[in-house]
Design a binder for these strands. Structure first.
Length: 297
DNA sequence: GACCAGGTAGCAA
DNA sequence: TTGCTACATGGT
């Protein structure tokens, strides 16, 4: 039985952990008992990650919108949780007000904010986010989650926590050495080659992170399987660039229906139009729009 | 079966 | 540059 720590976090503003973790931004969390995408009472979520060469297992449980309880093999967990959900970093009540003011008269941001109180942008580690979104193309959110967890369970390094074993997300080197058929067995399909080649590139050369959004996007585009949309997701969810708007089929649909003036000539055009319209927090607006249109009947 | 899902690479014009 | 099309897989 390994040693473990517990703690509590008081939140500055409400967060809805379950809907945030299930909203298709991160695939690095799972539910301790039961199916991840089922809604139940008393949900405990867990994640495994590498922090300064330490394998860290984190469990979180939310008993109210302003309170999180956690358990971990490492005390660093509390700082990690705060960083992932940007506690004390982003003032969501203020951001929401700004977005409502920027919205058009018949826009839907206000409704979505009201219906999705506590939905937040996550700030997750780069490499797992990059691989997750390479896997995400032409896939439903539920299946992306399955693919990511099969990668962890099949190829991630194992470690003990309490009475069981856990796996962290595989390293770039571990994925770089795989054969395409091995990943096709995990049902990654044509993305298998992209995951391997990108892992090789990632192992060979680190990207320059202290640059403009445009330069960052260009660097990310060099990875195999990373076009504009995947690059934008990695920037938003892996680099915390919350002014960036990834445009997928859902955003494309919702913009054509509710924001026709922002449609543009291409999805890339639409993305920059949305960024221009919603400004510094356009990525947050994107999440509200994405969630709104996906939960329509 | 056809269509779709948090699209992209490869190729032609 | 822009505009095709093939691509793996599973659910509806």
């Amino acid at each position: 039985m390994t040693e473990y720590y517990t703690g509590e976090i008081e939140l500055d503003s409400p967060i809805d952990i379950p809907s945030t973790l299930k909203s298709g931004q991160t695939f690095l969390w799972n539910k301790l008992n039961g199916e991840f995408f089922e809604d139940e009472e008393d949900e405990v979520f867990y994640t495994n990650r590498l922090v300064d060469d330490d394998k860290v297992h984190i469990r979180i449980f939310q008993d109210s919108k302003n309170h999180i309880m956690w358990e971990s093999n490492n005390q660093i967990a509390e700082d990690k949780i705060k960083s992932i959900f940007q506690v004390g970093e982003l003032d969501y009540p203020s951001i929401n007000n700004k977005l409502i003011n920027l919205d058009s008269k018949d826009g839907i941001i206000k409704n979505s904010i009201k219906d999705n109180q506590g939905l937040r942008i996550v700030n997750e580690p780069l490499f797992p986010t990059l691989i997750s979104f390479i896997c995400s193309t032409q896939m439903r959110v539920e299946r992306i989650h399955k693919m990511v967890w099969s990668l962890m369970q099949e190829y991630g390094e194992e470690f003990d926590y309490k009475d069981g074993t856990q796996n962290i997300f595989p390293s770039p080197q571990e994925l770089a050495n795989l054969k395409e058929n091995e990943l096709k067995e995990l049902k990654l399909g044509y993305r298998s080659r992209y995951v391997i080649e990108t892992s090789q590139m990632f192992s060979d050369e680190q990207i320059e992170t202290d640059v403009s959004n445009e330069q960052l996007r260009t660097q990310l585009n060099n990875y195999m399987g990373v076009g504009t949309k995947v690059a934008d997701c990695v920037m938003l969810y892996g680099f915390n660039k919350i002014d960036v708007v990834p445009v997928d089929t859902w955003i494309d649909t919702v913009v054509k229906e509710y924001y026709p003036s922002l449609e543009g000539d291409s999805r890339e055009d639409m993305a920059r139009n949305l960024e221009g319209h919603f400004g510094d927090y356009a990525g947050v607006a994107q999440l509200y729009l994405f969630h709104y249109i996906r939960t329509q009947d």
